[in-house]
Design a protein around this nucleic acid. Structure first.
Lengths: 186, 186
DNA sequence: GGTGTGATGTCACCCGGTGTCATGAGCACG
DNA sequence: CGTGCTCATGACACCGGGTGACATCACACC
């Protein structure tokens, strides 16, 4: 059935995360990750484009969840409502891995390289949201503004949610934060 | 007077930019940059923390201009008005180098590495704006939201301004874009 | 059984980035 | 005048991320 031990990418990702958490991102080499997974450095780079990506394994699923959440919002929903619905859907996906997420966030906070990559992921989500809005017939300028505003609202609300122990009602926090941004805009 | 040829950092930065523009960011090595500047690879890394930073030489000045613009806004100005005043001040600084800026933006657009670094710079500006707002007595949550909203407004307005030939009235565009975001928020 | 396919191993290589020590021009101070 | 200090640079070795090229080998399919 399986010619080699199964799920090489999963094993590499797990080995990477556990080593990063044990010793810190910078102190771990790709060769060590591969060794723990019973593979070689070269194979690591066949499954991940670089050392950082092993930390962001969930990012594509999050992006997809947000984008479909935007696309699936009621046809009459205003752009910003669709965006928040999208982020709520993405957050629901994140919540499945809530305890794991805590570790991931702490890890990212500990490394400038990982923060840099996270900004790229956030930008990709914003771009995907803007594109999804475009397919809803929203004009590009409004779409970009709504996507960025939604990203900011989500970032702030998500931080508050995590700081409160990740037990509260995140969609409600999103709406509340949106209201705060609304009043900031005057 | 000068023991070595003067302004090593400036020569390195200029050599880097011209080589990047000639051959593309990825195709240039640090050793080549240093050689064109009449220095060595080791000396490049004494003046720049990494290969990317040679592209963002103006970033600290921009950040400082935005931050002081926020701080110097009239004491009665609402948070979002202070933020936009800050970005207008930063934009004025950028406009001094308008033709150069075009090349820099094209260069950044051509390299994923440079885009990644630019996101970090934008995040640093947002953090500085939020901190400046904090010193104005704005509560942290409002400050963060206003900083992010301002960053999004600036990004959109600046792109439009550049696309229109960088000749229009940027502060007016900023206000216009802010109004657009206001109406997006509903 | 022969043939192909695809994930992996092996090896050599490039380049970004760093630690360490040597060099040498100018400056201060006796 | 000369001695010694400072400090930007050079020289060199090294590490680790990332890639290209080729070999290998278990399995599938004919």
């Amino acid at each position: 059935m399986v010619r080699w031990e199964a799920d090489a990418a999963g094993r590499l990702q797990h080995a990477a995360m556990s080593l990063y958490l044990e010793r810190g991102y910078d102190a771990v080499t790709v060769a060590e990750i591969a060794e723990r997974a019973g593979l070689t450095k070269r194979t690591f780079f066949r499954h991940f484009p670089d050392k950082r990506e092993a930390v962001f394994a969930g990012a594509p699923a999050f992006l997809a969840a947000v984008a479909s959440g935007v696309a699936d919002a009621g046809p009459g929903a205003a752009p910003m409502d669709a965006v928040l619905a999208g982020f709520a859907a993405g957050a629901a996906r994140l919540a499945e891995y809530a305890p794991y997420q805590r570790q991931v966030r702490a890890l990212i906070a500990s490394s400038a390289d990982l923060q840099e990559r996270e900004h790229v992921k956030n930008a990709a989500v914003a771009a995907a949201v803007a594109e999804a809005l475009g397919r809803r017939g929203v004009d590009p300028l409004t779409a970009r503004l709504a996507a960025h505003a939604g990203g900011a609202v989500f970032a702030v609300a998500y931080d508050r949610w995590v700081d409160d122990g990740a037990t509260g009602d995140l969609p409600a926090l999103l709406r509340e934060t949106r209201d705060a941004m609304r009043s900031v805009l005057g």
